[in-house]
Design a protein around this nucleic acid. Sequence first.
DNA 1: CGGATATAGTCAAGGACATTGACTATTATA
DNA 2: TATAATAGTCAATGTCCTTGACTATATCCG
Lengths: 156, 156
Amino acid sequence: MKRERASPIPLARLLALAYRQLIDALHVRLAAEGYADVRPAFGYVLLALREQPGTGVDIALLLGVTKQAASKLIDVMERGGYVRRKPHGDDARAKTIAITARGRKLLVAVEAIYRGLEVEWANVTSKERMEALRTDLRTIVEVEHGGQLPAVRPTS
Amino acid sequence: MKRERASPIPLARLLALAYRQLIDALHVRLAAEGYADVRPAFGYVLLALREQPGTGVDIALLLGVTKQAASKLIDVMERGGYVRRKPHGDDARAKTIAITARGRKLLVAVEAIYRGLEVEWANVTSKERMEALRTDLRTIVEVEHGGQLPAVRPTS
DNA sequence: CGGATATAGTCAAGGACATTGACTATTATA
DNA sequence: TATAATAGTCAATGTCCTTGACTATATCCG
């Protein structure tokens, strides 16, 4: 016990490290399953499109980036076969971006990997503590944003 | 209760949102105190240099980036007056990077802000839950890295 | 000892990924 | 129906990181 007094590890650092750990492990395992071209933002987009298709602007708002950035991301996702652009029925300016079968398969793979990772985490704490972690983080984020989960903005 | 069954919010998303929330609030408050030029990586560097000076390579390893990237960051931090480069006593190739008085003041300000933010978080959960959060995150990260906290790599 | 090799730091070029700005086509408004 | 707002794209730029190349100094080892 040299000097435990110095400085507790900043919570921000712990959050960053835990996040990176999760994301890095996810992408390692995805690559092993044949999804080597997946970028972190893909998941957020596909999760939104799983329920129903959306426009480029929808996705820009979802991610909290400009529509130009969203457009480029969709380019990449479309090249990878995860989404498809189609003409929009009601609005000739807009395009409908829809998830593809491959996109849905990716989501299923991601969810399986996340389940595995969360089990691993629960093994070093406990099922209850992991539940509390999830609940508390959600509460904290929602309170700050008036009960709604905000856009993601994965990086910074 | 429409469809609660759909999909639980991924833990990764909660971690990312909580992290951003903390970092964004920190920088807003720092700017209000006259530290508008502070970048997220500053804190990690200053925290390491608070105990003792280090070299550029030390900082590159700390951040998990190349020494070129570290060098540029140090340029910025030196321009801001938070660190100072000095010739290294023992090694004429190396330079000693030391924290300045302004750097120390910034750390004190950061810590005060973090304390305030963690109190705010504890107000929406509880002191005990926040303690558990910190403990569990630390455990999870340490277990994955053999009992040691790894480098930061803030973004990605 | 002294030549091969490793290391600290920097400069330069390029890449990844975002931004702002400008533009077209279409839709909504007044 | 003129005017303003909106969806999408292209181009240029900015930030921050990387790889590659280089100099100066330190260390290793035959």
